[in-house]
């Protein structure tokens, strides 16, 4: 009599009753799991420096205004810093909310709707934030009136 084969745990066999997404999704969930750890580790550095520079150093929150942002984004260093932070934080957060929706929303339609709203918000926020970083103008002219600041050319 042949020895019964016992598959290793996590071998991909899930009782059909527990499967919410029929068919194979490849190794998307493993990539997502790994992404959370890698992006998380990077975000700790990016966000702690962000908080230190904006809220602890200098005048802290009282020093933040349009000129403060202009001063930071005059440097490609902070543009890339903020861009990386925006993308990683949004993808990390979106995946976290996706997991929470999958955990608590039991109806297929509820999950679909919640994730639809989530992904739409994510795309809007990431595109908006990226455009803002790259199209920022430290000396805007609004309705023919030039912004006055010591770093702007005299009108």
């Amino acid at each position: 009599m042949a020895t019964p084969t016992i598959e290793t745990p996590r071998s991909g066999r899930v009782s059909p009753g527990y499967s919410r997404t029929p068919g194979s999704r490849g190794n998307f969930e493993m990539i997502a799991w790994l992404f959370m750890r890698i992006s998380g580790a990077i975000l700790v550095v990016l966000i702690f420096v962000h908080l230190y520079v904006n809220l602890v150093a200098g005048d802290g929150i009282t020093g933040i205004d349009f000129g403060f942002v202009a001063g930071k984004w005059a440097s490609p260093f902070w543009q890339i810093w903020d861009l990386t932070m925006l993308w990683l934080a949004m993808l990390h957060g979106t995946n976290g909310i996706r997991v929470i929706i999958n955990d608590y929303a039991e109806k297929n339609s509820t999950r679909m709707w919640l994730k639809g709203v989530l992904y739409t918000s994510t795309v809007v926020i990431v595109v908006l934030g990226t455009l803002v970083i790259f199209t920022f103008d430290p000396c805007p002219v609004i309705d023919g009136v030039a912004h006055v600041a010591d770093y702007c050319p005299a009108p």
Partner: peptide, 20 residues
């Protein structure tokens, strides 16, 4: 909590493109 703040934070920062 952090995720929802992040959404708001990108929106408030985006006001630099509206006007100082």
């Amino acid at each position: 909590v952090i995720f929802f703040f992040l959404l708001v934070h990108v929106l408030d920062t985006s006001l630099v493109r509206v006007s100082p």
